[in-house]
Simulated assay, not measured.
Amino acid sequence: MEKKPREYLRVTEQDSDLIARLIIPPQSPEAFHSFYEDFTLRGIRVDQFQPGSISCSFTVPPRLTDRNGNLAVGAIANLVDEIGATMVHEKDVPMNVSVDMSISYLSTAKLNDELEISAKLLGGKGAVKGTLVVLKNKITGEMIAEGRHSLFSVTRSKI
């Protein structure tokens, strides 16, 4: 028999212990990244970067898994958001804002699975740009998720 939602969402003592053991380093005032980015992106290795595309490797850590040991869907959405935003980032330009994300969850990734994350810039029109982010199991080649991500950026003044 499946657990009821209230029982499934109940925070256990084990969950509390995991959170209590987190080591959160202090952020310096001049840091350009947040705790959120550091927590979720720690461990990503860039394998190849070219204008318009990027390829990364990532081992699923315990901090990003759900109670069943699968990579959490929220972590996948975060990876699509962060990696997609990397594709449109420009130095000294205001931050891009996500306006739309569409993610197809096709399979699951387990704790310690090695993932390949590839992203490419699909194009843009005016201040809106689109990216495609794909997560695959590096060993089996099985596609875990595919995300399309649209971002908006304030354009530079011509004055």
Rank of each mutant, 00 (worst) to 15 (best):
M1N: 10
E2M: 12
E2G: 11
K4C: 13
K4S: 15
R6N: 14
Y8N: 15
T12D: 15
T12L: 14
T12N: 11
E13R: 05
A20P: 04
I24A: 13
P25N: 07
P29E: 15
E30I: 09
A31G: 09
A31K: 11
H33T: 13
S34R: 07
D38R: 14
D38C: 12
L41V: 05
R42P: 04
G43W: 02
G43T: 06
G43K: 03
R45Y: 04
D47M: 14
Q48V: 05
P51K: 09
I54G: 03
T59Y: 02
V60T: 02
R63M: 11
L64N: 02
T65L: 08
A75W: 01
I76N: 03
A77K: 07
N78F: 15
V80A: 05
V80H: 02
E82N: 14
G84R: 02
M87E: 03
V88W: 11
P94Y: 00
M101A: 11
I103F: 09
Y105P: 00
A109N: 00
L111E: 06
N112M: 13
E116H: 04
S118M: 07
S118W: 02
S118I: 10
A119I: 01
L121G: 04
G126D: 14
A127R: 15
K129H: 08
T131Y: 01
K138T: 00
I139K: 00
A145Q: 01
H149I: 08
S150Y: 03
L151M: 13
F152I: 11
S157T: 10
K158H: 08
K158I: 07
